[in-house]
Amino acid sequence: MTQCWQCREPVQGPVCAGCGAIQPPPPHPDLFAILGMSPSFVIDRKAVDKAWRAASRKVHPDRFAGASAVQRRMALQWTAHLNRARKVIRDETQRAWYLATGSERPSEGANKQPDPAFLEEVFELNMLRAEDPEAAILRAGELQGTEQARLAALFAAQEKGGSLDAVPAILNRLNYLSTVISGGHE
């Protein structure tokens, strides 16, 4: 429980119930929490949108059109957080990364190289792709299926105390595989 910066009453959530002032957003809010959701790998996109709409209605800058410039700025920051949260949570890769690491997935993906055996596999797939694209895409698709199943299994096991340490590596491999399938074009 913190104090409202304006009226000094205790305040919970982004807007003070007492005086209506918007509160300063935390610099790195929990993306699930600001949408009022519990962290989970399995989500319903419609439910995410619903939560996003409800949260946005409270903090959008339009709600503070008549307020001070400082409040409008904070409203902008809150809404930008909400829009980012919706984007990350709706996307399976970004969601998995966020749940496993607590941070957003960098645009270039993981810096760590995958294990040599996997790299060899990708190399062979790329060779195969030049000769027989259909077979290569089929094979890459199979590998994708395997990795996705592992991902889902890790998150299922997490509820019983399992570790998510292997998630970034799996996402990294999935990234390689989708590059093989798209032929190097994103």
Binding site: R53, S56, R57, H60, D62, R63, A65, G66
Partner: peptide
Amino acid sequence: DILTGSSELSDDLLLM
């Protein structure tokens, strides 16, 4: 009118 905050719609409607 919505932006005045006193419209009937102010609490219900938001343009994104």
